[in-house]
Amino acid sequence: MKAAVLQEQEQMVCTEHPNPQPGSGEVVIRVRSCGICGTDQHIYHGHPGSAEVHTPIVLGHELAGVVVAVSDDVDTLAAGDRVTVDPNIYCGSCEYCRSGKLHLCDRLQAIGVTRDGGMAELCAVPAANCYRIPDRMSFEEAALIEPLGCVLHGFRKLAIGPRDHILIIGGGFIGQLFLQLVRASGASRITVSEPAAFKHDRLRELGADEVLSPLDPDAAGKFASGADIVIECVGRKDSVEMAVGAARKGGQVLLFGVASPDTEIHIRPYDVFAKELRIMGSFINPFTHLEAIALVSQGRISLEPLISHRFTLEELPQAMRDYPNLGVSKGIINL
């Protein structure tokens, strides 16, 4: 088969690769669409993924396609089934798995992170990680069920009331998903902080009451007024510090953006104490795939209009190299 293989840091090639065979409990899917996640870029540049990465590896943990081969011990799926994939594989026996916190598994494995993923024509995955999709759902939408599931996990941590003012920091793909969920929750007011002016109209269309640029000096006073809930979707030092500073008394702060492991922030513990802030993290997507599929299939969450760039497998090595300069909000590979 053809695959985009990350041979070592910042060295990806599109090449012939052995066809995967289904192991016990597995199926092989013909990949039709695979999203490019910020985590793929982190791994490409030598930073950690959700688990330790060893090259050579085929990246791609946001994938959907058609089942083409099934292990003899699998009776839940059949060739021809259209599926989306939850990439995360848990050991089931560590302390976290046995206490219901599977996503914090000590031996977490992930398709496209610790084993070959969806940036290839074929991919072997556990049958238990596959979810059938409705016929009316496109493969592009199905591939993006995984990031929506991650957003749902973070969203579930928040207690949103009808009087709440929500500030979303970062209006890219993840911020746009949060925006749609928050809008549907009935919050009183939603402000989005986004420096890229070309995204502002889309953010208003998706339900933002106010879109501000953090680069605009006139916006500083508005951020200082405080939000009941702040959702940080960037993962930069300045944006994280802004998130903590912009929360009002009794506020909730969700740090969703993935920061570099060496990023350090400056906050005053007194402010956390005096404002009695609740600061939370959010890691991957436990038990959210079915809800994400339902939200998209019912038309309550829009995914395809959020895709800014589409690539072929052959274009992927150069796209990964040039990604920071392409102005990508959300990229996807179609096979």
Rank of each mutant, 00 (worst) to 15 (best):
179 L>A: 08
161 G>V: 04
206 L>G: 03
174 I>N: 07
197 A>W: 02
160 I>V: 15
144 L>V: 13
162 P>G: 08
153 H>Q: 07
183 R>I: 03
147 P>L: 09
186 G>R: 09
198 F>A: 13
188 S>P: 00
186 G>D: 11
171 G>M: 09
154 G>W: 04
196 A>L: 13
174 I>Q: 15
191 T>A: 01
157 K>Q: 15
161 G>H: 10
185 S>C: 07
157 K>S: 14
203 L>Q: 04
141 E>S: 15
186 G>Y: 01
164 D>P: 06
151 V>N: 05
145 I>P: 05
206 L>A: 06
171 G>H: 06
194 E>L: 09
157 K>M: 08
162 P>R: 07
151 V>H: 03
165 H>Y: 11
195 P>Q: 09
176 Q>M: 14
178 F>I: 08
188 S>E: 14
168 I>Y: 08
153 H>W: 09
172 G>W: 12
152 L>W: 02
198 F>D: 15
182 V>F: 00
188 S>W: 01
195 P>V: 12
143 A>T: 13
160 I>G: 02
180 Q>G: 12
183 R>E: 11
182 V>S: 04
142 A>V: 12
166 I>R: 08
142 A>R: 04
155 F>R: 00
142 A>Y: 05
143 A>E: 00
160 I>A: 03
186 G>F: 01
143 A>L: 03
151 V>F: 01
148 L>A: 12
176 Q>K: 08
162 P>E: 12
204 R>H: 09
159 A>I: 00
148 L>D: 14
187 A>N: 07
197 A>P: 02
167 L>T: 11
176 Q>S: 15
150 C>K: 04
153 H>V: 10
157 K>F: 00
176 Q>N: 11
182 V>Q: 03
141 E>N: 12
143 A>M: 06
166 I>N: 06
161 G>P: 04
174 I>R: 03
196 A>D: 10
159 A>S: 12
159 A>L: 05
152 L>F: 07
179 L>I: 11
203 L>W: 05
158 L>T: 11
202 R>L: 13
172 G>D: 06
187 A>S: 15
170 G>W: 09
160 I>C: 01
199 K>N: 12
190 I>R: 00
183 R>D: 06
149 G>M: 08
147 P>N: 04
198 F>I: 13
207 G>L: 09
144 L>E: 03
168 I>E: 04
158 L>E: 10
196 A>W: 03
172 G>P: 05
187 A>D: 04
149 G>W: 03
158 L>S: 12
152 L>G: 11
179 L>V: 09
149 G>E: 01
189 R>C: 10
168 I>C: 06
158 L>G: 13
205 E>A: 10
207 G>A: 01
146 E>T: 14
159 A>V: 02
185 S>T: 13
147 P>V: 11
204 R>L: 13
163 R>N: 15
143 A>R: 02
177 L>G: 13
178 F>L: 04
172 G>E: 05
183 R>P: 03
196 A>R: 14
154 G>E: 09
145 I>T: 10
200 H>P: 08
177 L>K: 01
142 A>G: 11
146 E>V: 14
147 P>F: 10
